[in-house]
Design a protein around this nucleic acid. Sequence first.
RNA 1: GGUCCUGUGGCCGAGUGGCUAGGCUCAGCUCUGCAAAAGCUGCUACAGCGGUUCGAAUCCGCUCGGGACCUCCA
Length: 490
Amino acid sequence: MKSTLQVYNSLTRQKEIFTPLNPPKVGMYVCGPTVYNDVHLGNLRTFTSFDLIYRWLTECGYSVRYVRNITDVGHLENDADEGEDKIGKKARLEQLEPMEIVQKYTNGFREVMRIFGNFSPSIEPTATGHIVEQIEMVKQIMARGLAYEVNGSVYFDVRSYAKTESYGALSGRQIDELMSGSRDLDGQSEKRDALDFALWKKASPEHIMRWPSPWGEGFPGWHLECSVMSSKYLGMPFDIHGGGMDLKFPHHECEIAQNVAATGCQRPVNYWLHGNMLTLNGKKMSKSDGNFLLPGDLITGNHALLNRGYSPMAIRFFFMQAHYGSTLDMSEEALAAAEKGYQRLAQAYGQLKNIKGSGQEDPGVEAWAERCQAAMNDDFNSPILVAQLFEAAKWIQSAAAGGIQLSSNAIQVLSTEFERYFIRVLGLTESRNESEEGSIQHIMELILEIRREARIKKDWSTSDLIRDRLSRAGISINDGKDNSTWHYES
RNA sequence: GGUCCUGUGGCCGAGUGGCUAGGCUCAGCUCUGCAAAAGCUGCUACAGCGGUUCGAAUCCGCUCGGGACCUCCA
């Protein structure tokens, strides 16, 4: 009995069976980073969560078009800020062209994604590459009477929109509550209503990033690019839209409104998935609040909060031990625990090549494989999957040590499925060259054979020399009851 | 102030009505030339109070604590 994939849909606030619009194709859009600064660990967690989701959808046999944008238009720090945008400000501070800033941090972002084992998206569109389409969408919204121009800026008319459509469904907000809760109205005098948001902003004279438009020189509003690029590459409607929990409002809410207003499509996105926050000291990591860790700091351990560094895969495993929809608190103690756990699984994975089907025992590997699948099908529940992998690790280690005699079929299933879930689904792999691996496997067999003979002769100095030298090369020897095995130290 | 989420054993973290989550730490044992690893065993928790129920960590109410969003943010 195969389980079916269920996902928690933020829009309906419940788990739903995942049904793509055009199977086996699946369209997934995830809000990417604004490249005005280094990505921090919280950003990394969200992208890693969606990498897991991408991997599982692919593993399920779907052909996924995964679109993740790069926001390279600098947006204003807030509506009241009339002057510089973030990228322009950073460009001035670093004395670089805005596009140099964009390139620098885009490169850094991609490098971090790669190091932490995240696949590249199918399409990685940039906001500046879609100015024409964005202007087009503003026109469409204006044509429907749901936006207005003031002094070279165009604003979305939320009140008018809300007369016929629902605004706030995703974030569970009522317009009147928003009104009463909104703060001072400084710098918002242009808008007819405090709720309205910018589709196009007039560029002040000192604003560097600017483009011509029917309304004069300016730049697109923050929410617009995602509406434009998602619909351009995935069509309208499409299957999955992801992003961090903090983007739910206003960003995603405005995206929906823009798409509905521009196209008339009532439900632009079928499934909204939100990754939860990584916290530090109990508070959300945030660039602007200065409460964050950079991935590089964690690897080197060069940070006031850390005593030592941790490998990218240990950090990825730390993420995988929590559900993507839950907040996760970062502490060195938790990280150290995750590192140990990761090493255990990595060792078990390495032991797979050492065990042989000499017996008839089967601890129930078929049922185990189904539990792994069921865990992932239950809204990508990686912590449950991890627990299952630990169970398999015990069997593998017992078999490697000669404790249980697994059947060749059991070993076959364990090998196939452990690799599937540990490497392909969770993405926990140090990349190694396959052809080299084959050679090393042969060489290690020879070395272990020589060592075994030395040990039979009680030639402990040779035995220990081999062990010590291999250790220096990053390879550990485990002496079992009547055989020895090896694995890479991780 | 408004909306919403959350509080699990020393630590991290699953679990939405009854069945051992899992990992880390700690203690003991087995294996063992030594070391390391591995395996086994033990430590059995659900913020507090009240309610619903044969039965609640899980549902409802209240209290207390933490957090997110309402402003740029993954």
